[in-house]
Design a protein around this nucleic acid. Structure first.
Length: 207
DNA sequence: ACCCAGGCGCATG
DNA sequence: CATGCGCATGGG
């Protein structure tokens, strides 16, 4: 909470306003995939290019040519892999859920998570980001910053899911006025920024 | 000229 | 099981 007082809301996702009617849930998923090991500034450029090209929809991405898609997302790096990832992801949600997010997010959370993990190109962090930020599911997202923070305080696990349990159990009391989802969202964002700026701040009593 | 960024899949020992 | 490596761009 000290971090929160210091920095305030981070407003991570959502999202590019830009007036245009596009699928914001999808935009979050695209961002989650494009930002894999990549600076967000580079991802933003790619997202804007996709918007400008009217490609920020499931249908458009899954139907557009590989060459065109690559050009749009080039700035986000690893563009060959990421093009494939976006196409696989889009094709899957269209085929299995008629492109209807509600149908997918209606599933029990762990089933939904596993299904994401079964897709090529979606690992645990990306899956959890999609569930939390796109699906508003209460899943705590772990990334390198979170692990670094833990290590600093002498907490280490070998498995990703052990970190996740640690935070989800440790953060059992949610501050009043916050939903669990909002709190996870904000907490994760703060950790990332905290890591970036190497600020001195204290998170106590996590567990 | 390096190093890093909101990872992941795959090959190797 | 657990490391190691390739993937690619742009900013410090």
């Amino acid at each position: 909470m000290d971090l929160f007082k210091q920095y305030g809301r981070q407003y991570w996702w959502p999202v590019l306003g830009n007036g245009a009617e596009h699928d914001k849930t999808f935009e979050i998923c695209v961002g989650a995939i494009l930002t894999q090991n990549t600076a967000w500034t580079n991802v933003e450029k790619a997202l804007n290019r996709l918007l400008d090209a009217n490609l920020m929809t499931l249908k458009a991405i899954s139907e557009c040519s590989v060459v065109k898609l690559r050009k749009c997302i080039q700035s986000a790096g690893y563009f060959r892999q990421k093009t494939k990832k976006l196409k696989i992801f889009s094709g899957w949600i269209i085929k299995k859920y008629d492109g209807n997010w509600k149908k997918f997010f209606a599933k029990p959370i762990l089933e939904a998570r596993q299904e994401l993990l079964n897709l090529w190109g979606i690992g645990k962090e990306t899956a959890d980001s999609i569930l939390l930020y796109a699906g508003n599911k209460s899943i705590f997202v772990i990334d390198v910053y979170t692990k670094r923070l833990c290590k600093k305080y002498g907490v280490e696990f070998k498995d990703y899911d052990d970190y996740r349990d640690f935070f989800e159990k440790g953060l059992s009391r949610i501050p009043s006025g916050w939903s669990r989802v909002e709190f996870y969202n904000e907490f994760h964002a703060l950790i990332v920024r905290f890591g970036k700026e190497k600020s001195i701040a204290i998170i106590h009593k996590i567990s």
